[in-house]
Design a protein around this nucleic acid. Sequence first.
DNA 1: GGCTGGTTGTAATC
DNA 2: GATTACAACCAGCC
Length: 602
Amino acid sequence: MKSNSTTKIVLYWHRTDLRLHDSPALTSALSLKPTTFIPIWTWDPHYVYKSRVGPNRWSFLLESQINLSNSYKSLNPKQKLWRRKPFSQNYGKDGGVTHLVFEKDTDSYARARDEEVIRLAEEAGVEVIVKMGRNLFDPDDLVRKNGGKPTMSISQVEKAAEKIGDGRPERPLDAPGSNDIPNPLPIEKMDLKGIQHENVDPGVDVNSDHRVGKDKQYIDIMGPNQDFGVPTLKEIGINPSDIETPHRGGESVALDLLNGYIQNEEYIGLFEKPNTSPAAFEPQSTTLLSPHLHFGTLSVRKFWWDVQDVMEKRKKAKKPNASIPTNIPGQLLFRDMYFAAQAAIGEAFCRTYGNPIVRFIDWHLQTKSPEKIAHGESGGKLYDVDSEKAEEWFLRWKEGRTGFPWIDALMRQLKQEGWIHHLGRHSVACFLTRGGCYVSWERGAEVFEEMLIDHETACNIGNWMWLSCTAFFAQFYRCYSPISFGKKWDPEGNLIRRYCPELAKFDKKYIYEPWRAPIADQRKWGCRVTGDKTDWTEDGQVYPKPMFDFDERRTICLDGMKKAYHVGLHGDDKQVKDESWRKAFGIEEGGQRPQKKQKTNQ
DNA sequence: GGCTGGTTGTAATC
DNA sequence: GATTACAACCAGCC
């Protein structure tokens, strides 16, 4: 397999770890004592155009790469983050690469990709080293210790974790120092030919809406110095003026943020997610470290241990600490829970169709086959009653013009900044699915995938299942009100005033229900509540009327959920695959749902 | 088979 | 601000 030469040319492939601190894979690579070391990033078609990535997340990614590249440069002026192929058929000729090292990625698409990369590399006699570093615990280990089953609750994760080592994650590793980073190959010896562009198939580019030159078959990505460095936004077809997020990427940003929080021992020790406000901004009520976990600009093990050390210090001083699962370590355990659930189920984890853990609900706009999902299509309608209406509701939800200011403010914050508080996500996700529109969670998950800078497939999909009560959570009668829930946190309506500025002057009495404000007041406050759009008019601004009666919709949704739970189908049931489920739901040919009958369980 | 707990509901009542 | 009814889900435990 390995060449006998003592020369070690090590290719280090950064993917889920855009950092130098606590990367077990990077530490392994450097401990080989390479003669030559080439840290690389490669353009994965999945990221470039097969999965949804909006401008804000692109921006966060490139900032993170620039930061990493600069960190390498500061340790060794000849180094940077190189854009290069992760493997090559020409390994033997290609400067004689001997090792390929990367962090383990258990996302389902990534497993298939990595299997192929490993096969090609090993065929070429290159030794491949893969190390877990993305989670507290290796998701595959958690699954094994959970009897091979997907982890469906925090107690299962805790029990499984107790069977791994001492039940706690491993301590973080130090970042390499300036003597630890060897030189790269001279540029002329690197196999960099033929990658001035990255091909993009416009036919399947789900991000074409964001791209300048959307019909182009490729994007230019040579970097501003034409030297195979980190490309600019422009090169990947993103207009810099589309970037609105105030949140910045990069390992140094992440470590500064974490260090700041760690100084505040009270905040760390007493943190309980359900007691943090979804309506707070400047400053936010939570840490905003989630995008850094996604890009690996912060090690989750460092996060966990820094917090743990504070909590142990507080405990010794007889100061109180919050407990799992609402405290910070508990929040990080949820991340591992979703990762391990995905690791157990594989590619079907991301959808209903074929997924054993997901309840089948007769949602509107249900996506019906894996092929459709892979190409980002809606998949048509499973039954056509109200489907056009549902599509309209979906679009109004996505664009933040439902007529419910709390929902619209959150959706506009999401679109602008790429981040909203976890409870805000609860609110809008419940509203789209079981608590309002009765639209499939898969459609909502697609929107979050595109817009969130912290989008993590496992957590996003898992949380949508949770909120839609299709897996992990089942108390569907606990329904978020688009009026009461926001009011509880933000009685003055400050979040609404910021993100729906047309309502900024409304009295707090009406800010959550502007349609109830008398016309004279609407005129006085400079915004008419009418129609279904948000737009300027000659005599002032317009905010839409609510797109439906929420109380009525809540009742309809609750009945639907009761029925679906009673029917009890899951994504892998035969009736779902062959679409004969309609019969079980009493839906007649032609798609008409039956008139509401007596409650089924009376 | 019954009881309890489950990260984060709402509205009415005291 | 705490308590309770609402209508009633699942999993885990005894």
